[in-house]
Amino acid sequence: MPHTAPYRSLRFLACLVVAAACSQAAAAGTVSVAVAANFTAPMQKIAAAFEADTGHQATLSFGASGKFYAQITHGAPFQVLLSADEATPARLEREGKAVADTRFTYATGALVLWSAQPGLVDDQGAVLRSGGFRHIALANPKVAPYGAAAVQVMEKMGLATTLQPRWVLGENIAQTFQFVASGNAQLGFVALSQVMVDGRMAQGSAWRVPASLHAPIRQDAALLLPGRGNAAAIALLQYLRGDKARSIMRAHGYAD
């Protein structure tokens, strides 16, 4: 995905790779990874490829970045964080919970207005103005980047005040998707990665929201303190920059 990290981050990670390989004799190891819920499907595939290519295993936990932040600050032994935003890894670095100069943008997310019902959502998002629905789901904008982006879209369209009484807020983007998939909400703003398989929309109907309608959803990774010196953790961060991982991300709707 995008190479937006400072050069010093690349250089520092390279140094850590060498040091960890020397200290652990490059033996296969295990890394505990906290993964943003929207990145579930691609990360499962990346973890399998990572193990096949390196011998290292990634133990994955999926959830809301805000909750991971709370767990990490209270001593949870995660070694790598793949956040849904830029702010959480930066905050952990400032607070001494993440290794300095290891942050980088591993993915840039895309927002989609989606319904499990074919034909409900048109390819211009006009359904938002027609009001042909009872409930619209979005992730809690106070803690979820995709939810904040959804609010920005509605504000730019001049519909936020009108639609707010119909909002159903998910704790995270995974719960938001479930609200729509189950029919409890007729449509909702979810991550494109949740409804795209092998570069195509899997089911239902959708409007891919233009990126110009919301702030970029940059998702940052960071090496956490428990992962310092762990060859598997450092190797995973390097692997996420590689062509194979990036190809998997693109197939799930993440932008280069």
Results as ranks from 00 to 15, higher is better:
173 I>N: 11
131 G>E: 06
245 A>T: 07
198 D>C: 01
44 Q>H: 08
55 G>W: 12
127 V>A: 03
145 P>L: 00
61 S>L: 13
121 V>R: 02
238 Q>F: 06
234 I>C: 07
49 A>H: 11
227 G>L: 12
101 D>M: 05
47 A>I: 09
122 D>N: 10
226 P>N: 13
34 A>V: 06
230 N>T: 04
20 A>I: 02
58 A>N: 07
167 W>N: 13
50 F>W: 03
94 R>D: 07
47 A>E: 02
20 A>R: 10
91 R>L: 11
208 R>N: 09
190 V>I: 14
218 R>H: 14
194 Q>I: 01
26 A>N: 05
249 M>Y: 11
185 A>W: 05
199 G>S: 02
74 H>T: 13
112 V>E: 03
218 R>F: 14
185 A>D: 02
72 I>S: 11
209 V>P: 02
114 W>D: 00
89 P>V: 07
52 A>Q: 15
156 K>F: 00
48 A>H: 11
139 A>F: 06
135 H>D: 05
23 S>I: 07
216 P>Y: 06
157 M>L: 14
237 L>C: 09
182 S>Y: 05
146 Y>K: 03
140 N>Y: 10
159 L>C: 00
107 A>C: 08
161 T>Y: 00
131 G>T: 07
49 A>N: 09
18 V>H: 11
216 P>V: 03
215 A>P: 07
134 R>I: 01
17 V>A: 15
246 R>M: 09
209 V>C: 10
92 L>G: 08
223 L>M: 06
162 T>G: 05
102 T>Q: 12
158 G>A: 09
154 M>H: 09
229 G>R: 00
32 S>P: 04
232 A>C: 06
228 R>C: 14
115 S>I: 03
117 Q>K: 14
244 K>H: 06
207 W>Y: 11
74 H>Q: 15
139 A>R: 01
34 A>I: 04
14 A>C: 02
47 A>P: 10
151 V>G: 02
144 A>P: 00
143 V>W: 03
72 I>D: 03
73 T>V: 15
141 P>R: 11
62 F>Y: 14
214 H>T: 01
69 Y>C: 00
201 M>G: 01
64 A>N: 12
181 A>V: 00
88 T>G: 06
184 N>R: 15
33 V>K: 05
216 P>M: 08
184 N>P: 00
206 A>E: 08
60 L>I: 08
249 M>T: 00
102 T>D: 11
136 I>H: 02
206 A>L: 06
215 A>E: 15
165 P>S: 08
107 A>V: 08
15 C>T: 12
224 L>G: 12
252 H>G: 01
129 R>Q: 13
33 V>S: 04
246 R>I: 12
199 G>K: 03
141 P>E: 07
48 A>G: 10
179 F>L: 15
106 Y>F: 15
29 G>M: 08
250 R>A: 13
29 G>A: 06
116 A>D: 05
51 E>P: 01
81 L>A: 10
21 A>Y: 08
10 L>C: 07
167 W>G: 10
244 K>P: 00
177 F>E: 10
42 P>L: 03
196 M>R: 06
106 Y>R: 09
48 A>D: 12
216 P>K: 01
75 G>D: 10
46 I>R: 02
221 A>P: 11
219 Q>G: 09
235 A>R: 14
100 A>T: 05
163 L>Y: 08
170 G>V: 12
225 L>Y: 14
107 A>Y: 04
26 A>T: 04
180 V>C: 07
43 M>G: 09
147 G>D: 06
101 D>K: 11
